[in-house]
Simulated scan of single mutants.
Amino acid sequence: MKDRLIVALDVDTFEDACMIVDELSDEVSIYKIGLAPFIGYGFKIIDYLKSKDKKFFLDLKFFDIPNTVELAVYQACAMGASMLTLHTIGAKSMIEAAISGKKRYEDKFGKSGAMLLGVTILTSMDQESLTNGMFIEKPIEEAIFGLAKNAYEVGLRGFVASPFEAKLLKDKLGDDIVVVTPGIRMDNSKDDQKRASTPRFAIENKADYIVVGRPIIKAKNPKQAAIACIKNMKGED
């Protein structure tokens, strides 16, 4: 289960991020770099993770014209990202461009590029925010599946989904897809995550990886929190 836990490095400084990586070194091999840490110290922490033989998940949620996304995916692959995110709302042409960017990297260097993960509806959103904020009248599960199916049809095989939709996507699209699940909380508290759940629930609902941020990095003892999370994934607590 250790290899299925991704820790989000959502901390203010490079030094704080390094401390987290060092403390969790024995338990965690993949770290998520989102917008804030990437803007603040992204290239430094990427170099640091590489020096520690750790993988990184670049969570910048690409959403732009197809040509720009194709170039961004190529550069992210060249940077060494193991995973990266893009918004499926960008439509088929943008997703096809992202896949082309990955393929161009792979053809040029002869090695695998980053796993492309489509983001459908953010886990901070619920039905009310979908309807009143994005003006999408469909039920949230229907909207999520529609966006994922659209992306799947042009070749995308990785998705970000809440614990509540991971099984839905696997059951309807097939087990050849990879699902990465954020919104993980050890005690079912949700804060700004509207569709959150425990690690065990996510794994039982067919998540391949889970992303955990605050419950680990804000804990008094991050290492013990990571160990507790892994045990919960296994159903051992």
Rank of each mutant, 00 (worst) to 15 (best):
T131H: 13
Y152F: 13
G118W: 00
M79C: 06
D191K: 10
S129I: 15
K92L: 02
I65V: 13
G90R: 01
R185H: 11
V69R: 00
P199S: 02
K170F: 05
A148V: 06
S25P: 01
I184F: 03
T120Q: 09
P163L: 05
S189Y: 09
I95L: 01
A8S: 15
P199D: 02
I45K: 11
D12E: 15
G40S: 14
Q75L: 09
K50A: 14
G174K: 08
R214H: 08
M1T: 05
S129T: 15
H87I: 01
I210L: 07
T181I: 07
I210N: 06
K170M: 10
A196K: 05
N67P: 01
I140M: 14
V154W: 05
V119E: 08
D187A: 15
V212A: 10
A202M: 03
E153G: 14
A207E: 00
P215H: 09
E141Q: 14
G158A: 04
K138L: 15
S93F: 00
G110P: 07
K50E: 13
F135Y: 11
G101E: 00
L71N: 02
G174M: 11
F43P: 04
Q224A: 15
A98C: 00
Y209T: 01
S93M: 03
E153F: 08
I227H: 05
E236D: 11
P139H: 11
A166I: 01
A161K: 03
D3P: 12
P182V: 05
A98D: 00
T68K: 05
I140E: 09
S197A: 12
Y41I: 06
A166E: 00
G34L: 06
D175I: 03
I227V: 11
L169V: 06
D107W: 04
F159D: 12
K218T: 11
S25K: 07
A219K: 07
I184L: 04
G235T: 06
I33E: 03
R104F: 02
I39D: 03
T13M: 13
Y48K: 05
I184D: 02
F135R: 12
G42D: 01
M19K: 11
R214A: 06
V28P: 10
E15K: 14
